[in-house]
Structure formats: C-alpha cells, structure tokens
C-alpha cells in the first residue's frame, strides 16, 4: 500500500538504476577542464574543476557531462581553489533531440547530454575536456552563436510552401519507403556537429561572408528533404540554384566527417551526393533549355 511519495521518491531514490552492468561503479572524482571565454576571443582561458561521482549504488541513473556542469554551477571552485563563475552553456532537452548542448568534448564534437562520464572518464582522476565549437563565434564559455545555420536554412527555402493553415484536406500520399527516407532526414536538429567536424566549414564572424562560405551538410540535407516532398518540390529550382552557387554543394570536399559525427545518423553524404546529382541535372537542363 502506498503511504507517500517520500518512501519512493521519484526524483532522488532510484536505486539500482545507475548500474547497467558496464563501466565503473565505484565513487570517484574526475577532472573537468573547460575552455572559457568572456566573449569571442576575449579572456580565453582554461579552468579545471573537480567533480565527485557517487558510486553506482548511490546514483540517480547515468551521469553525463551536463550533470557535471550542473554540479560545477552549484559550487564553481576550480582545482586550485579559486572561486570562479558557473560555466555558461546551452542546454535544452537533455535527451539528444534539441541539439542545444553541442560542444567539443575530448576533442570531438557531440552533445554533452548523451556523453556519459562512465565512458569518457572511467577511472578516478580521469580528465574530460570541454571546448566550445570552433566554427561559430563564442557568446560566452561553451555557448556559441549558431544563428548562421538557421539563416542558411532560410537561404535554401527549407519549408513546404503551403497555401496557409486553412482546412484544405490531406497532403500528398507517399510510400513507406519514401516516408522512411524523409523521416531520417527530418530528424536533423540543427545541432551543427556536421559543420564543426567539416574541414570545409569555416568560422565566419562577418555576416557578409555567410553566403560565400560552405553551407555545410545539414542544410544540403534539408534542401534534399524538401525537394523530396511533392509540394516542397515546387521550390526545387530555387533551392538548386542556391546550392549550385558559391558556398553550395560544390564546396564539399568529401571528407565525409559529417556523417561520422552526426548524432542522428542521418545519411548526410547520401544527401550531398543526391543534391550533387540534382544540381548537375538542373544545370544541364538549364543549359539546353535556356531556362
């Protein structure tokens, strides 16, 4: 018989959940080294914090980098005893569907929420390094300004041009195969991992350079997503014209890092190739039809 929530506390008492059979289970202290800055290029410095991890039996489920940052925020004192400030970073859903907490962890870009410390720092005294993404201007600490990515989505008209929100019946039918392909592309959360890892994608602080510099895999893949939709395809020409131009599909260097780091495992390189074909055919057609 249930007496009260205190006996079975939803938030705190989750005995046994943490240990999933893998990784270390003992209590330990790890070090978290963070590249901080007051704003882009200003007062850039490294700070190191200690984070105490309870043993598996004491834990409320798996511990990730966000939990470490939360612990640091509640008592921001560096290893050398200096009182610092909570580390600034973006976060949202904490289950890897919003894309907010993207950062460079131990040298590679990924979401901090799905980065479990048992995988990254299995032993006492292990070090995890956190850096902001390098392809975007730093707002503060680990928070970067990714607005360029959203602007790029607008440049390829990443939407289906519907006739308003009126009741106009169903949308176009599609086969389960088409749906599955589109669904995969549609899970892109604009996190920017593919851009950070791309050797062709460059940091641009000057907005006037946005158009000329490589647009990156995410946006190319989104253009493909909308071209695949019956109504979306009515704007195919505009999208292909944009992608055929400077900073578009031709700037891809085919390192294929994008597909390796994509947390949603979106077939980005297939999108790039598919858009490569579309752009090629589009330009050939244009050449011969004169339109």
């Amino acid at each position: 018989m249930i007496q009260s929530n205190d006996d079975t506390d939803l938030a705190t008492d989750t005995r046994g959940h943490a240990a999933n059979g893998k990784g270390p289970s003992g209590a330990r202290t790890i070090r978290v080294r963070i590249k901080r800055a007051d704003s882009h290029g200003k007062n850039v410095r490294w700070e190191e914090f200690k984070v105490d991890l309870p043993s598996a039996g004491e834990r409320d489920g798996a511990i990730n980098v966000i939990a470490c940052l939360q612990q640091i925020a509640s008592n921001p004192v560096t290893v050398d005893g200096t009182r610092s400030t909570p580390v600034t970073y973006e976060s949202g859903c904490l289950e890897e569907v919003c894309g907010s907490c993207t950062m460079v962890i131990n040298g590679k870009v990924r979401q901090a929420c799905s980065c479990l410390v048992d995988d990254y720092a299995p032993n006492d005294g292990d070090l995890i390094t956190l850096e902001p993404m390098s392809k975007f201007p730093v707002v503060r600490d680990l928070w970067v300004d990714r607005s360029r990515l959203f602007k790029a989505l607008a440049s390829v008209k990443a939407w289906v041009p519907i006739d308003g929100t009126y009741d106009l019946g169903e949308g176009p039918e599609e086969t389960p195969d088409e749906q599955q392909t589109r669904y995969k592309l549609s899970t892109c959360m604009s996190c920017g991992c593919c851009l950070e890892a791309c050797p062709q994608y460059t940091l641009e602080e000057d907005e006037s350079k946005f158009d000329e510099s490589f647009v990156g895999a995410a946006v190319i893949s989104q253009a493909r997503y909308f071209n695949m939709h019956e109504t979306g395809a009515t704007m195919k020409k505009q999208r292909l014209d944009t992608l055929a131009g400077p900073g578009g599909i031709n700037n891809c260097g085919n390192s294929q890092n994008c597909v390796k780091v994509c947390p949603k495992e979106i077939p980005l390189t297939e999108s790039i190739a598919a858009m490569g074909r579309s752009v090629t055919l589009h330009r050939i057609k244009e050449f011969f039809s004169g339109r």
Binding site: E178, R182, S186, H229
Partner: peptide
Amino acid sequence: DLFDRMGVPFNRTSEG
C-alpha cells in the same frame, strides 16, 4: 491534414 500538407513524415501503411 494540415501537418500532412506541411510535409511532416507521418509513418505510412503499405498503401501509403
């Protein structure tokens, strides 16, 4: 229907 028109990839049956 509206979301369908906006292109949301709703799961489909074999008939579409």
